[in-house]
Every structure is written in C-alpha cells, then in structure tokens.
Design a protein around this nucleic acid. Structure first.
Lengths: 190, 190
DNA sequence: TTCGTACAATTTGAGTCCGAACAACATCCG
DNA sequence: CGGATGTTGTTCGGACTCAAATTGTACGAA
C-alpha cells in the first residue's frame, strides 16, 4: 500500500520541486488525508454493504436522506445529499424505476416535487442501515469514541470555513475576472 | 447550508427509525464529516484554482503524482492517485492531448506504459501548485497546525484500517458468497 | 389582466468514474 | 519449444456529475 508512507515523502519532493517556496505542510497533509480517507471509506462501504443491494454511494445517500427526513422537496434532498439538483433528477428517476422512491407534486406549489420512500424502500433501509452503520464503525475502528469526536469536530470546522467564507474567497482570488466556465457541460447559447 | 446542524438531528431520527437498535454515533459522525469535508474541499479547489487552468480534480491529482514522483508506470500512478486503471487511461489520454503529459513504452517490459510530464506540464505545475497549496491552507484556516496534525493522524488511521483489514473484512462479511457484481458496467460475456 | 421577475425541477451536453471483459505481453514449467 | 498462468494497459457499458439552458409555475405590480 503506497498511501501513508508516501505523503510525507511526497511533501519533501514537492518542496524540492519548488526550490525554496515555503509549503504549508500541515494543511497539505490534512487535505490529502481527508480525500484519501473519503475514497477509502466510500470504496469499503460500496464493496461491502452497498453492492449486495445494487446501490451506488450516491443512491444510498439519497435514500438515507429521504428516509431520515421523511417526504422532502427535491432541492432540500440535493442540498443535504451534497449533489446538484440535476444529478438528483437522474438518481431519483433510477430509484423510482426500482420501486424504492416515489415522487409526488406539491399540493399547493406546482413547481415543487416531493420525494418519499415506498414501503419497499423503507424496508430496504431498515435492513441496510444497520449493516452500513456497522461498517462505519469498522472503518473508524482504530479511533476511540473521543478521537472520533475530535476528528469529526476538526472536519466540521473545515466544512464551515468553506461554506461560510469560500464564496467570498473565490471572488477575491479571481478579483473581477469571470469565473472561467467549465470546458465541459452545455455550451453558452451564443 | 444544511450540513452541520442536521447531522446530530439526523442521528436521532435514524435511531428512532430503528426502534432500539443501538447506533454507533461517533463513528457515524466521523464518516459523515469525512465525506462532507472531502466534497467541500474538492469543490473549493476546483472552483478557485483548477477551473482557471481547465483541470478537473482528478486530472490535477494525476499531474501532481507524476510531477512529484517523476516518470512512473501507470499502475502506480493510478494507485497513488486513487483512481482505477481504466479511468487513468482516459485521463492520461486527455492530458496527453493537451500536451501536458507524455506516455512512453517501457524499454524492457512491453506491457508497461510510463508517464512523465512534458516541459509545459512541469511549467504548469510550478505555477499552479503554490496556488493550490495556498487554498489548502485556506480551507484548513480554522485549524491550528497542531490540530491539522491531529486530524490528519486520525484520518491516516482510518485509511490504514481499510487498507490493511478491509479486504479481509469484506470476505468475512460475504462469507463465501460471490461479491455480487455491479449492475452497471460491462455485462458478463454470456 | 397581463407583464415581468423569481424560483422550481428537468433536459442537455460534455465528461468522469468504476469494474468486467479483453488483448498483448511476460514468465514459469515441462 | 509450447502451453498454462499471471500481469498490464485498454476498451466498453452503465451510472453519475456539473452547470447552463429550458420549461413550468407563482406572484406582485402596472
């Protein structure tokens, strides 16, 4: 396994590459490990509990959100699941086709769509979630409860930093320049 | 801005849904926040420094790996970058087309392909990486150096747990049953 | 009433991503 | 030498992804 040993080594190599420009090592390490951990956890969960139910990570997260929050408007589900509205439309369609999710128009506001689990969906989550949580415990197995709390708190601060100051920061960085559109995606109309 | 407040609430709701089955709260929170933080960080980095260079996160990581490690075999690059071999083939092709990456056959083993940066690629990384690292520092701005180290160390343990015991764990869980192929992806031949 | 503005979800386009199947090569063993 | 076995990178199918454009609905003002 390459991973852990190499991060420290990679830092040195990167610093050498830059010839004297100082590197924010601790910050670099924390970002690298956040991403590494996220991939590792996702992969483990997908391969252990999700594959058997033929669910992707995203599909599971969407089901989970609707499960715990009950019938919800799609924009909230997308926000809560951390995906775009457009992506949710597709995922929801897939899940609806598999009979796990239901969509219904909002009674008074015709623009909204409400998502809820079908009975089959509820049943699946009742069965699947305990197994999922068990694997969450497995991946965190080398951390004590106290350490879990402390790591979680640190990560929360990262999330808050980006959510509360990220936008402003991006504006400052680009300083007026247009945000440089993605090269992929639908083309500007003209 | 859904995020933080809701996790604690969601735990209670999930517990209620399960009626008495105990939940591993701390472990659940740490996993949820790992994923949340990873998305937030990725999005910020993509929108601030990467978009300007028309690079996706993955493309940047691949370039970074080749940059710091020098000419490398594709399987090592994929491993180090945390993506599959198949994905790397496509990403490398794209980067090659943009003149940032070079591919060369291995002199003695005809199966291998070696990746290295072109001069243009080197130049790009010299320019881009300092800005990238600056934003890494930004997202970790609410953590002290000491806190960064401690969070990183906690995450490293998660990664190691999955890397060292994940495979065995999956085998135990499935207990003989075939690993249940993905429903997506290429179909079995017959 | 008829605009115009403000949202909501969906469609669309370009592209990423995984993992199974595959083809090409390497290596071991008889 | 010849085949079995194992490894490598590539191809392929389906799901996911984002953001811009679009479509549909709501609601206030003229």
């Amino acid at each position: 396994m390459p991973g852990q040993r190499s991060i420290a080594e990679a830092e040195k190599l990167a610093e050498a590459k830059l010839g004297g420009i100082p590197l924010r090592r601790e910050q670099m390490a924390v970002v690298a490990n956040i991403y590494r951990a996220a991939s590792a956890v996702r992969q483990h969960l997908e391969n252990s509990v999700l594959r058997g139910a033929d669910l992707t990570w995203t599909a599971f997260v969407v089901l989970w959100v609707v499960w715990v929050w009950g019938e919800s408007e799609t924009r909230h589900v997308a926000e809560e699941a951390g995906i775009s509205k457009g992506t949710l439309t597709g995922v929801a369609r897939t899940l609806e086709g598999r009979g796990l999710l239901r969509r219904a128009g909002h009674p008074s506001d015709g623009r909204l769509v409400l998502l809820s689990l079908t009975e089959e969906g509820e049943e699946l989550m009742r069965r699947l979630f305990p197994a999922f949580n068990e694997e969450e415990a497995f991946v965190a197995g080398r951390l004590s409860d106290e350490e879990c709390r402390s790591v979680a708190e640190g990560l929360r601060r990262v999330v808050r930093q980006v959510e509360e100051e990220g936008e402003e920061r991006r504006v400052t960085l680009l300083d007026g320049a247009e945000p440089a559109p993605r090269r992929s995606g639908r083309r500007a109309k003209a």
